[in-house]
Write a protein that binds this DNA or RNA. Structure first.
Lengths: 343, 343
DNA sequence: GAGCGTCATGCGAACGATCGCCTAAGCTTG
DNA sequence: CAAGCTTAGGCGATCGTTCGCATGACGCTC
């Protein structure tokens, strides 16, 4: 169904080699022959087979991109950034949703090896992703982690300063009077969870507030997880006055639970989280968040992986730590405080 | 760097053919030989080269997915649906952002042909995408359009009933008293724009309200477009009392412009649009929208393209028309009306 | 006019896995 | 024990492109 170089060659009365030279703009072809070949290419609607080319050159022109959930705006914006950089460099992007599932992640990674992707950008499920990633390390496969590091795996990495971000968030809550601040967070085998909790604890300590284990609720970093965790928090006595959610999706789930409980944010319960939801912020700047430079996560990761592809596997691994900002809006109750000091 | 069947064969003391038989679970290999081969595979960390396999079998195992903007939640949710279905069927997804740019779209389509993707799901830029897509049609390339049709191109299609949806939206605005309803919409060479405008006009006609060309503002379907269009609308005299935005992103841009103008939705200006922003709706159910079954767009499109791949290019093209619902929330002013009949 | 460089082009192999076909050994069977 | 069948496994070709090398024609130079 698809014409090959040989078909074109036959039609143009030349050899396959000459056709190859023409389509690759190579020198050493007379103008006359070139024209004949070009006509044959057009007539047969010939498009060189990228798979065969890939086999010859050992270059697939493909990058893998594995994220837990593409529908999370944090990741969809990140993906856009990465895709744009990759495309400009002539690379295609294979998108994978790991759904936070280690087995699925493993399958995707193996697929990258099998199909000879030239590099991989991955937001790993957690520390246990290490087993999935060592085959890549062994092959010196260009690999860039985003958002989360993997304990015991040394490789390129783009992340934000989670400790500092969490400290800002918690300090802010403390500064406006909150003392019982619950945390909705993932298990400790996720690096960002560890770091954010560390920042939270540091802020509490600095303020001389004692932390309590019962305020730390572990869950999955999605809406369902946030919802379940919040339900649990709402039953505590005394009830916390503020909640620090590990990311935007958990915050949304928490918000839902709070509303279902007939309570109002921030009057009855303050709510802050990591990761802005940009589209949402445009419509109503409500959530107080630590905003990470989302798109830059993607563009930087793509640049790193492309450099690694171009420069070979040698060279020390690079860690890019991005700054994030505290955006104080309504959900923390700061504005409420300002108007009703009797809180 | 990567072992081949021949390397494994040498180490196991067999031929490449036998290795191939083992890794494909084929019969005709003695248990003893099989074990030897399996050990060699493990020792060499051999992973069969998918590119070479693809060349032999003419099956790349890849689907293309082209959308205008992956960071638009409508598309990111759709992509998740499509990716999930594709993966379960053993396919990988090549994600492309056309950015609404015809030239870029063309490049992506050609890339699909070159790399022998087995099928393509695309939300086309507009009617002018036809030139980009005819090469696919000529090759009987499995192709499914989503969201928008392309005038003059007959192929599989998944879309919502835009006419009915727009009619619901406009009728609702009319029913609560609005008479000057502006429309922010794309040029007429986008099928959904045509259809939504048609629904709007039908609703006006049914209500005996005359439509005015000056109320129709053409723009691009993104935030910047919505913002610019809204600025224009806000200068009209008499000022419209409601705005119908062609999709969620334009609505966000419009919202921004309205707020910058010191006005409040819905008190000073009602605002409705197509496509819910799910995450946003959880946080604060504010926008009145026509909600399309977003994820289903993706899953159905993937199913159609997979069927087309499995069943061959024959068979009539199928058009799936999904229903959408009107979600009346606050931004239309319905609740406002209820409490202040003097509007 | 012999030697040499340049240019356009072709030949055969290679990338890595697999498919069709073949062979050789072992076993059954009458 | 010879014919026939089953089983394990190898050989060579193939997918479509490109690479290294060879070749033949032409023109230039001393």
């Amino acid at each position: 169904m698809n014409a090959t170089v040989r078909d074109v060659a036959r039609r143009a009365g030349v050899s396959a080699m000459t056709v190859s030279r023409v389509i690759n703009g190579g020198a050493g072809v007379s103008p006359e022959t070139r024209r004949r070949v070009e006509r044959a290419v057009t007539e047969l609607d010939f498009v060189p087979n990228g798979v065969a080319r890939g086999l010859m050159s050992s270059k697939s022109g493909t990058l893998g991109l594995i994220v837990p959930d593409i529908s999370n705006p944090f990741f969809s914006i990140l993906v856009r950034g990465a895709e744009t950089v990759a495309r400009r460099a002539g690379y295609r992007v294979l998108l994978c949703n790991s759904e936070g599932d280690l087995a699925l992640e493993k399958q995707y990674v193996q697929d990258m090896i099998a199909h000879r992707a030239e590099g991989l950008i991955i937001a790993p499920v957690g520390d246990r992703s290490k087993a999935n990633l060592v085959p890549l390390e062994r092959r010196k496969f260009p690999l860039v982690l985003i958002d989360r590091s993997v304990s015991g795996l040394e490789c390129d990495l783009v992340q934000a300063d989670s400790v500092a971000g969490a400290k800002m968030l918690a300090s802010h809550l403390l500064s406006i009077g909150h003392r019982r601040i619950a945390v909705i967070i993932e298990p400790d085998n996720v690096s960002t969870a560890r770091e954010r909790l560390q920042g939270y604890n540091a802020a509490l300590k600095a303020a001389g507030v004692k932390s309590s284990p019962s305020l730390i609720v572990r869950t999955t970093a999605d809406r369902a997880g946030g919802h379940a965790a919040m339900q649990q928090i709402l039953q505590q006595d005394p009830r916390p006055t503020a909640v620090f959610a590990v990311n935007n999706m958990t915050a949304l789930g928490a918000m839902q639970a709070i509303r279902e409980h007939g309570l109002v944010v921030p009057k009855d319960m303050a709510l802050v989280c990591f990761d802005d939801v940009e589209h949402l912020a445009v419509l109503s700047p409500f959530l107080t968040v630590v905003n990470q430079p989302t798109e830059m996560f993607g563009t930087l990761a793509a640049q790193l992986v492309l450099e690694r592809i171009a420069g070979g596997p040698a060279g020390p691994s690079r860690h890019v730590i991005l700054n994030s900002d505290l955006l104080v809006r309504e959900s923390c109750g700061a504005k409420l405080m300002a108007t009703s000091p009797a809180f």
